[in-house]
Amino acid sequence: MLNRTLNISTSPHIVKGLGTDDIMQNVVWALLPVAIFAVYSFGISALMVLVATTAACVLTEHFLCRFSKKESTISDWSAAITGLLLGLTLPPNFPVWMAFVGGVIAIALGKFIFGGLGYNVFNPALVGRAVLQAAFPVAITTWYPAFLEGRFSAVSSSTFTVPFMEPTVDAITGATPLSAFKFDQVITPASDLALGLITGSTGETCALLILLGGIYLAARKMMNWRIPVAILATVYVLSGILHLIDTQAYPPPLFMLFSGGLMLGAVFMATDMVASPITPLGVVIYGFIIGLLVVVIRIWGGLPEGVMYAILLANAISPHIDNWIQPRVYGTSKTAKAS
């Protein structure tokens, strides 16, 4: 038995055992309740959207890997996350063909061109959504109220639009809390917001479930809790100050926190590890920038919602944050910084 050939490798010879695919898989688990609630509140139309984006992302990932003669990387679950997230940011009545296009773009433009998992400098799902928003601005801002009768028996008229054709718009459309505020100065009660009794993108309506998913991931150390905390705190404080200055013109901070895609963005999008800074301080700065941009765009900008743009812009800044904020290496002077 002492004549067996030994294996040699570099230390350490033991690993903690938590794999990248485990992390990704857990993110999917954390997203599932949100997705299930989406289907519950918006019916099969929402399910169609989610299935379309997820399938598009996974298939695109697979075929692009084949195309570049690499091993398929769909088994790391990251494409599934992208697809699910993208679906959750789209309106429930979004035409399926557009959702599919969005998924393809998210993976191809948001991930593949940078070299795949680990190199995407932007959150792929948000890249997909940004392109969709720019390409089909009407369809992506046509909302559909939650808890409609018959949502499980029929899809909305726009869901199965013929590919490349304009969707037909239902008579029943709703306004999201943010656009209701922006254009009509109507403030939706915070309880409705938290419980998801509102109009909005499939996955952004139930803030409580999103928070629960986030807490699960943070507890299992699969997500950097500092990011959502920094974002939400920034939004709360900034909008709180504004609200104190002028209660009429500026919405209450809780409304800002729970409306629109902020929760989903802060918990699941901004925390994309690859596109966010790596150091604790850097992460807080990153969160602050997102919060600031969200408040600025929502309150002074032309658009009712700015979470997507805020995160994309912060993604673009995060290499700089990583450059500026390096951990102080043990034994180096406190003032000297890595250049």
Partner: peptide, 22 residues
């Protein structure tokens, strides 16, 4: 012959640092 099975980065310089390589 190989003395041991080297596992790790497939480069001579890296392997040489692990007990001199296999």
């Amino acid at each position: 012959l190989n003395r041991a099975r080297y596992q790790g980065i497939q480069s001579c310089q890296a392997a040489a640092l692990v007990s001199g390589g296999g």
